[in-house]
Design a protein around this nucleic acid. Structure first.
Length: 448
RNA sequence: GUGGCUAUGGUGUAACGGUUAACACAGCGGGUUGUGGUCCCGCUAAUCUGGGUUCAAUUCCCAGUAGCCACCCCA
């Protein structure tokens, strides 16, 4: 009895963890990338664009075999030629490859590079996390001086500051291959004393990587962690001096930071400085689980060697664009609107339409942002459209205007209309738009 | 990878084990062919997929899938 309904043609939906960036959201993206570019230019960073795809081993060797990223989050596949390739989970490794491959060591050092673009991790999507996400990445390559660490942290901070996001930099030092093993022993000894009181995960980590226990979010572990010996107290002379200098520079620059011994980062390549960006609220409420990093980074002085390059000290950081936008939206911060059409060109009747087509081209050449709805014929739908598009002025060309050689200008805010000589239309529009711009600036000045 | 919650037009919601699945917004068209942001009318459009229970399932059950959230980790 129930007649099978005609199957509709199958429709498609987003692949898991993917996200469309719709027109309404573009203003955020444009704002952030403009801001990043501005910072990059001012601090002397050049843009580099590297491929989305690299040899899988580049990532396994750099990010670290035993990290989550490599163990379970990589988009790896064999291509038709049998190559094992992966979608980049981050920028650092690819930039290292490019630097080494193109002999950038012969450029004046340090080489400062920035990138912006999509990265991929096969994570389980949740709030603020996608499988395709976008990073903004800065790297200073070839300089071991702590001032470069401070500058990178400063830039990471400034991005948030310019967006009006209150953040605090959580900083730490994980030492170097000389002093870290010593610390790991001390730490292991400490945790062994509490072996039975630790959470299951941490007990496992005790064997594999005791450093990671510090990162634990289990309530059980918290008090034990608080009493744990800190890397900072077990740094070698060089690392200690380096760290102190970094902090001094940050003080000097008035970058708000907090020493946080639990910032160890999930990537293997870090040495010395590590840091993460968190919002002030998250830092204050102390609830570790709610902290979503807006960005993070640090120093990796051994990475380039491990990828076949010469010994090259590097500091860098990445910020998550989706997360920045998430914060902007959550806090309802203002973002400049994308440029809109300023003029709408309406036409009535076949002859007027022909005339309007030509007028549109003239206005285009004169540099105006004009929109139209040439396929519509009534005045009403056209004005409606003009309104919807937020045009400031509407030009109306009809039979009457053609005969008189004029154009009607309608001010969309006040509804006042004036008839202007067709030949004088360009200067007239220019004059009006300028006046409007002046008024707008004046209003903005008052409100600030 | 583990766990919790959810699944109805484009969006946000409603409803009932039983005829045409309701409402709002958006979209499109119109309100006698020259005036928008108000109003009025009309149209378009949905029960995630597959099983099961039942005379009957959009509703109850199971599975799958997807989404959200949390863990893990990170951006």
């Amino acid at each position: 009895m129930p007649v099978k309904k005609e199957k509709k043609t199958r429709s498609f939906q987003l692949v898991k963890g993917m996200k469309d960036i719709l027109p309404d959201d573009q203003k955020y993206w444009q704002y952030i990338s403009q801001l990043a570019e501005t910072l990059a230019v001012k601090y002397g960073f050049s843009r580099i664009d590297i491929p989305l795809v690299e040899d899988t081993q580049l990532f396994t060797r750099s990010v670290g075999q035993a990290t989550d990223i490599v163990e379970k989050e990589m988009y790896s596949f064999i291509d038709k030629g049998g190559e094992n390739i992966s979608l980049r989970p981050e920028f650092t490794a690819g930039i290292a490859r490019a630097y080494i491959e193109h002999g950038m060591i012969n450029l004046p050092q340090p080489v400062k590079l920035y990138s912006i673009g999509p990265c991929f991790r096969y994570d389980k999507p949740q709030s603020g996390r996608y499988r395709q996400f976008h990073q903004l990445n800065f790297e200073t390559i070839g300089d071991a001086d702590p001032v470069t660490d401070a500058q990178i942290i400063l830039i990471a901070y400034k991005i948030n500051e310019m967006l009006n996001l209150p953040v605090i930099m959580q900083v730490n030092s994980v030492g170097c291959p000389q002093c870290r093993p010593d610390y790991e022993l001390v730490l292991k000894d400490y945790f062994k004393k509490y072996r039975n009181k630790l959470s299951e995960v941490s007990q496992k980590r005790l064997l594999k990587n005791p450093l990671r226990i510090l990162d634990s979010k289990e309530d059980l572990d918290q008090t034990i962690i608080e009493g744990a010996p800190q890397q900072v107290d077990h740094l070698c002379e060089e690392c200690k001096n380096h760290f102190i200098k970094v902090l001094e520079y940050l003080d000097e620059l008035e970058v708000p930071y907090a020493l946080n011994p639990t910032i160890v980062r999930g990537l293997d390549y870090y040495t010395r400085t590590t840091f993460e960006v968190t919002t002030v609220e998250d830092a204050e409420n102390g609830d570790k689980s709610r902290q979503i990093a807006l960005g993070g980074g640090g120093r990796y002085d051994k990475l380039y060697e491990s990828l076949g390059g010469r010994e090259t000290p590097v500091v860098g950081f990445a910020a998550g664009i989706e997360r920045l936008i998430g914060q902007i939206k959550e806090k309802d911060l203002k973002v400049p609107a994308l440029p809109q059409a300023e003029i709408f060109l309406a036409q009535l009747g076949t002859e007027a339409r022909r005339k309007a087509l030509v007028l549109f081209e003239e206005l285009y050449r004169a540099g105006f942002k004009v929109t139209e709805a040439f396929s519509k014929s009534g005045i009403k739908p056209q004005l409606e459209m003009a309104d919807r598009l937020g045009a400031k002025l509407c030009l109306i060309v009809g039979q009457k205007e053609i005969i008189d050689g004029t154009v009607m200008i309608r001010d969309m805010d006040g509804g006042i209309q004036e008839v202007v000589d067709y030949k004088k239309i360009v200067p007239e529009l220019r004059k009006r738009l300028e006046k409007m711009a002046v008024v707008r600036v004046a209003i903005e000045d008052k409100t600030v």
